[in-house]
Design a protein around this nucleic acid. Structure first.
Lengths: 346, 346
DNA sequence: AACGGCAATGTAAACGTTTACATCACCGTT
DNA sequence: AACGGTGATGTAAACGTTTACATTGCCGTT
């Protein structure tokens, strides 16, 4: 129960605290003999340097702040995995906080994180633009945005190619011959959602298919909203031949609605989602979706934050966009295709 | 870009730093006039107290450490949600770290966390007993175990009732009339897995059903191991009439295997899992599973850690066990009586 | 013999706060 | 008029480290 600190170690080893600090950090030459003696005492006392005291003088905490909205948990946890992995490789740890996309919460978080507790910050803020977040932020550096709308060019951001993911998927559907392709969108305020919708529109345009307003349904990325969106669609006089959902949760909801109404997927209506969540593999029919490299996004964000600090101290800004890839399963109708071809030939 | 700190504030407001500190914390009487003046300067400078400096003297960081294995991410993220929510209500933030169940990693984490960075620790360590973890741990207090094997009675722990969850589920299967009930287990070293297996055994015993060794398959809580386990089962001469998997991931894997081999679930083999992950709702047939209150487990752990500190300074120890409930869906065969037959798409 | 250089270690300031204690002015008692 | 109490504020030590600078002793040169 005795006092335990660098002073105690110093006393017992008959050296000054400076020397103890030196052997602790290997920061200067210490004679082999003293080194041994100090190490022995450290071991004996089970002494651990006090991180706070150290941080006060070094201005380094080896902690990284991560601010996330709490939505879709599969995405969230995968991102954390990536961040944590990359962080620990550099012997950093992470402080996570979810903001529920509440602007005030974000500011409060930023404050906490400012107080010197973290050496850097990774922010994912799909609803609020980088500039909005940065209003009160003085530490323009040591900040990386993930999947957020960074309008000014002066930020570092890592995001996925929502636009092309959606574009390619819709083109794939068009390739199947579907001409009435519905979409269940995300919220207007959500950055990802907007981009994905744009990809959808562009694919239609490139293929000279006109937009049909009644096939553009609102949603909010929840399973529930997918279910409800589908129900709306099923009330239309002419139904679409395919449906693209702006994320997998909504696609799952839509699928549930179709099962209930005995719509055969993809026979009557083909379906595709976005995110490639684990569940996509297990539903029936397995869901065709756009794969996004979430884990990599996390590791890259950390890399930018910790490794690239020196490289970009100017106000250039870096914008890294990760490519997506479509993964074909059953729900888009690909397994039917060969049948059709066969029958056509016959 | 001028210096910015409590000193600067003090200077501009023509008071001592002590007074600034006092208005910051409301810790002592300050005249209304001074209070206003200081507040104005703080606002003008956009001053934020430096958390590290403060922590050094108060010995409080308002940070909570959370150590988790990285396995099954749905569980993981839900637990974090609960912890984070409860923490922020008490204006705490959390430091998360996953250990990959590596004993050395755990120790390293404990060290980091010891250094004064956190005010308390929540540990989930299904593979290593509390005493093992605590070897080098001096701060017996401010420590809560989640879903871990705390053999000594001197710890605070929160866990779920694995035994009874499994017991009830297997009894439910028996109630259906199934007599050959297979199990895909988790790893022997995993606490949850052991308890769930014990529940299975006990249910059989109570109902005078003999264990059949070839129906007790090893697994490791991954989807893959469920798939492989099922493949083993399907090679048996006499197949089981039902399968209980020690977690949902494995059940999902088993389901995939059965789909591939055109086994009808639950017609030919009924299926039940454990954890009630979100995906359980969306697979076909929807998976019957044991619901565990993960989120609540997180909030309760925090509650114990932060609210109950005074209550238990002795070495009594607290052991809170949260009850589980079985949620019946289609995979166990409950809907077979009147529901429409599973349409075949072969 | 005096000195410069070097290796090993000690001294003390600094980091940004909080807080026990001291100080001070003022006011009401006696 | 002297005093004690009180409310407002200042002073300085403390928290546990790191590190620039100072000190010491020794050795090899000249």
């Amino acid at each position: 129960m005795s006092k335990n600190g660098i002073k105690e170690v110093a006393k017992r080893a008959n050296v000054s605290i400076a020397t103890v600090s030196r052997v602790l950090n290997g920061s200067a030459v210490v004679s082999e003999e003293t080194k041994q003696r100090v190490a022995a005492v450290i071991d004996e006392l089970n002494y651990m340097p006090h991180a706070i005291g150290r941080a006060l003088v070094t201005h380094k905490t080896n902690l990284l702040g991560v601010i996330l909205p709490d939505v879709h948990s599969e995405f969230f946890s995968e991102l954390i995995r990536g961040i944590d992995q990359a962080a620990r490789e550099r012997s950093y740890h992470i402080i996570v906080s979810s903001t529920h996309s509440n602007k005030k919460e974000i500011e409060s978080m930023l404050n906490v994180m400012q107080g010197g507790h973290v050496d850097g910050l990774i922010i994912m803020s799909p609803h609020i633009s980088a500039e909005g977040v940065l209003k009160r932020l003085s530490l323009l550096s040591n900040l990386v945005f993930v999947n957020s709308y960074t309008n000014g060019a002066k930020f570092v951001s890592v995001s996925i190619d929502n636009f092309n993911g959606a574009y390619q998927m819709v083109e794939h559907l068009i390739g199947h011959g579907y001409d009435r392709i519905a979409i269940i969108k995300g919220e207007e305020s959500n950055f990802d959602a907007r981009e994905r919708f744009n990809g959808y529109l562009q694919a239609l345009k490139k293929n000279r298919i006109h937009r049909i307003p009644e096939l553009e349904i609102g949603g909010n990325f929840t399973e529930e909203s997918g279910y409800e969106g589908m129900m709306k669609i099923l009330k239309l006089k002419t139904k679409p031949s395919a449906l693209f959902c702006a994320n997998d949760s909504m696609a799952l909801g839509a699928l549930r609605a179709m099962h209930e109404k005995d719509i055969i997927v993809p026979g009557e209506i083909a379906l595709a989602g976005f995110d490639d969540v684990p569940s996509a593999r297990y539903v029936l029919p397995a869901l065709t979706s756009v794969h996004v490299p979430i884990y990599e996004m996390g590791t890259i964000a950390v890399k930018h934050l910790l490794d690239g600090v020196k490289a970009m101290d100017g106000m250039k800004g870096i914008k890294k966009v990760l490519t997506t890839s479509i993964v074909i399963r059953e729900s888009c109708g690909c397994s039917l295709k060969s049948d059709e071809e066969v029958s056509e030939m016959a």
